[in-house]
Measured scan of single mutants.
Amino acid sequence: EHKIILYENPNFTGKKMEIIDDDVPSFHAHGYQEKVSSVRVQSGTWVGYQYPGYRGLQYLLEKGDYKDSSDFGAPHPQVQSVRR
Rank of each mutant, 00 (worst) to 15 (best):
E1G: 08
E1I: 13
H2R: 08
H2C: 02
H2P: 05
K3G: 01
K3N: 14
K3A: 04
K3Y: 02
K3H: 13
K3R: 12
I4G: 02
I4R: 00
I4T: 07
L6M: 12
L6N: 01
L6S: 05
Y7H: 02
Y7N: 02
Y7R: 01
Y7C: 01
E8P: 05
E8D: 07
E8G: 08
E8N: 08
E8L: 00
N9Q: 11
N9F: 07
P10K: 11
P10R: 08
P10G: 05
N11A: 13
F12G: 05
K15I: 05
K15C: 04
K15V: 05
K15H: 12
K16Y: 15
K16G: 11
K16V: 08
K16I: 07
M17I: 15
E18W: 08
E18M: 10
I19T: 08
I19N: 14
I19M: 02
I20W: 02
I20D: 13
I20S: 13
I20K: 15
D21N: 10
D21K: 06
D21F: 00
D22A: 11
D23L: 00
V24N: 03
P25W: 05
P25C: 11
P25N: 12
P25D: 13
P25S: 10
P25M: 03
P25I: 14
S26E: 14
S26N: 10
S26C: 08
S26T: 09
S26G: 08
S26L: 07
F27Y: 06
F27G: 01
F27W: 03
F27Q: 01
H28I: 07
H28F: 10
H28Y: 14
A29S: 09
A29I: 01
A29C: 10
A29D: 12
H30D: 07
H30L: 14
H30F: 10
G31S: 06
G31Q: 11
G31V: 00
G31T: 05
G31R: 06
G31H: 11
Y32H: 12
Y32D: 13
Y32E: 12
Y32R: 11
Y32V: 13
Y32G: 13
Q33H: 15
Q33G: 15
Q33S: 10
Q33D: 12
Q33N: 06
E34R: 10
E34T: 12
E34N: 07
E34D: 08
K35V: 10
K35P: 07
K35I: 09
K35H: 10
K35F: 07
V36H: 02
V36G: 03
V36C: 14
S37C: 14
S37R: 14
S37L: 10
S37I: 02
S37M: 14
S38D: 05
S38R: 03
S38N: 00
V39C: 09
V39T: 03
V39P: 08
V39S: 01
V39A: 05
V39N: 05
R40N: 07
R40I: 13
R40D: 04
R40K: 15
R40E: 06
V41F: 00
V41W: 02
V41T: 01
V41M: 00
Q42L: 15
Q42D: 07
Q42T: 11
Q42R: 10
S43M: 06
S43C: 07
G44P: 01
G44H: 01
G44R: 00
G44C: 01
G44D: 00
G44E: 01
T45E: 08
T45K: 04
W46R: 00
W46T: 02
V47F: 11
V47Y: 11
V47M: 07
V47E: 07
G48T: 04
Y49P: 00
Y49H: 11
Y49F: 05
Q50L: 02
Q50G: 02
Q50R: 03
Q50W: 01
Q50H: 07
P52L: 02
P52D: 06
P52I: 02
P52T: 05
G53C: 15
Y54R: 02
Y54C: 04
Y54D: 08
Y54A: 03
Y54V: 02
Y54T: 00
R55T: 09
R55K: 14
R55H: 09
R55M: 12
R55E: 05
L57W: 09
L57H: 13
Q58R: 14
Q58W: 05
Y59A: 09
Y59W: 08
Y59N: 04
Y59E: 09
Y59L: 05
Y59S: 05
Y59T: 03
L60T: 13
L60I: 11
L60Q: 07
L60G: 04
L61G: 01
L61K: 12
L61S: 02
L61W: 07
L61R: 00
L61H: 03
L61D: 04
E62N: 07
E62H: 07
E62D: 06
E62A: 10
K63L: 13
K63N: 03
G64S: 00
G64Q: 07
G64N: 02
G64W: 01
G64D: 08
D65C: 07
D65I: 03
D65P: 01
D65T: 04
D65L: 06
Y66P: 12
K67S: 15
K67T: 04
K67G: 13
K67M: 14
K67P: 10
D68R: 12
D68W: 14
D68N: 04
D68M: 13
S69T: 13
S69W: 10
S69P: 12
S69C: 14
S69E: 09
S70C: 11
S70E: 12
S70L: 12
S70F: 12
D71N: 14
D71W: 09
D71H: 14
D71T: 08
D71R: 11
A74F: 05
H76T: 07
H76E: 13
H76Y: 14
H76K: 06
P77T: 07
P77C: 10
Q78T: 15
Q78F: 10
Q78C: 15
Q78W: 07
V79K: 07
V79D: 14
V79E: 15
V79I: 14
V79L: 09
V82I: 15
R84G: 01
R84T: 02
